[in-house]
Design a protein around this nucleic acid. Structure first.
Lengths: 271, 271
DNA sequence: CAGTGGTCTAGACCACCCT
DNA sequence: GGGTGGTCTAGACCACTGA
């Protein structure tokens, strides 16, 4: 059991898949051809269907593209029509700026009703609460407030505020898997205005984010960005090409799950 | 060649696929089992690999879920982590409100530089230009300004402003396939403030949208939403589970495409 | 235990592309 | 024509599930 796992795992198609994934990331450029299916058949001593299973997987992931009669090629980096759960730091660096943070407030606090509701917790339940001023290239960008239920990670703030909340949660086995931003515009409070050093304008972009690990609500956060320095780009896909199942999901009496906690299936239905 | 296409097309797996898709949409509820693979093998007189090809396709689309040892079931409507290209009307109705429109301005106009640049057109080239006040349940929600190159659809405004721009474009064979919103916050101009009947606040949420049909830029639009009445919900996926190809795409000398027109591969890279 | 999906074989013919 | 992917067969054994 410890031997014979060449590269990818127990299954043959995984070995082929791993080989191809490695080829793509280390040897080939976009547009290059991978070995033909029959070649792979020989090099791995497997049947063609097995090779195809491996190639199929990478095609489905958008890593490879097939072209009948020509071959199979490394696909150009795919259009990404999905926003990602990124941290302020990653986001700033992606935009070519150096992120900075000043902790304004930290500690435990009872959950306000809006926060409790959003996380599916009883009102007033204990939460880690952190308020930070975030900056990019030295100038203030946003004020960010975070709540995380204490019981999920009691020791979260024991060593001070971690550089990345997502990182700290990940270390505790609570990797964020999806989330939801609600974006709106309003005016800065005088306190926010001062913190963000805003002068001409008071317009700010606010986002409320709920972060989940699977079904479990992990974190609630509110950010307030300078309207004159920050914008969000959202890629948009074609309207609904999908196949819709369920003709009429008969209301069920048993098996009613937590009501206020949306599942991924509820995401994307704005409002 | 004209006969023998039972339901889905020439290929056997497409027939099975069509049969299953029909089952899912007309007979089965979420969670119901589909016929077993071996059953399908018999009813369609095909081999099991062929059945699997059909089922695989639907599983990849998120319509079905396999469970080893138990069966294959209709999947719950999938989490939708993608924002869709919707029109103001669809969007309003989805939120349970009745959309309304008042045309403020309409006609042809030379493209301002920002618009021309965004659409990859020469500055000053002729564009359809429409400004509309959009309302929901009778109260003003946003001011929207649209530019569409005249040459794409010369007759676009011949019968007045169409109820849906996307619809009108679709009728002319220019179906929008993807787009990109840039969302920001700022203050309303006095004109906007008056049109939107804003009183307490001046904060507005602005979106700049570019709409494409494949590689072709179709439309540029700017909207200005009342900050106190409008917000956008953006679903967020897990941060980068993907496999990244290209170690170093050697700069190519030939085959350089239109420079200022981004392809889908550039979407999602904010900023 | 019987039934399900998961993996795998060793062939086959076809449609397509390039030379 | 020779190579490529696209489809398809008729089996096989395995791992897992549920009664």
């Amino acid at each position: 059991m410890s031997r014979s796992r060449a590269q990818g795992g127990e299954h043959k198609y995984l070995a082929v898949r791993a080989y191809l994934a490695d080829l793509v990331t280390t040897e080939l450029d976009v547009g290059d051809a991978i070995p033909s299916e029959r070649t792979l058949t020989e090099t791995f001593n497997v049947s063609r269907m097995t090779v195809r299973q491996a190639v199929d997987a990478l095609v489905n992931e958008g890593v490879l593209e097939r072209a009948q009669g020509r071959g199979t090629f490394v696909a150009p980096p795919r259009a990404d029509f999905e926003m990602r759960l990124t941290t302020f730091g990653e986001e700033a660096r992606r935009r070519g700026m150096e992120p900075g943070t000043r902790v304004l407030e930290t500690g435990a606090a009872p959950a306000p009703s809006s926060v409790a509701e959003a996380l599916g917790r009883p009102q007033g339940s204990p939460m880690h609460h952190v308020v930070r001023l975030r900056s990019a290239d030295g100038s203030p960008m946003s004020v960010e407030e975070v709540w995380i239920p204490c019981d999920l990670a009691p020791d979260l703030l024991d060593d001070g505020v971690p550089p990345s909340m997502y990182g700290a949660l990940r270390e505790r086995g609570l990797a964020p898997t999806w989330g939801e931003d609600t974006i709106s515009a309003s005016e800065a409070t005088t306190q926010e205005q001062a913190l963000l050093e805003m002068r001409g304008t008071r317009a700010v972009l606010r986002t409320v984010r709920r972060t989940f690990a699977g079904d479990q609500p992990l974190m609630y956060s509110r950010s307030c960005y300078r309207g004159d320095r920050y914008s969000v780009v959202v890629p948009l896909r074609e309207a609904r090409p999908m196949l819709v199942p369920r003709p009429r999901p008969v209301p069920l009496d048993d098996d009613v799950p937590l009501a206020t906690v949306p599942t991924p299936a509820d995401a994307g239905r704005a409002d």
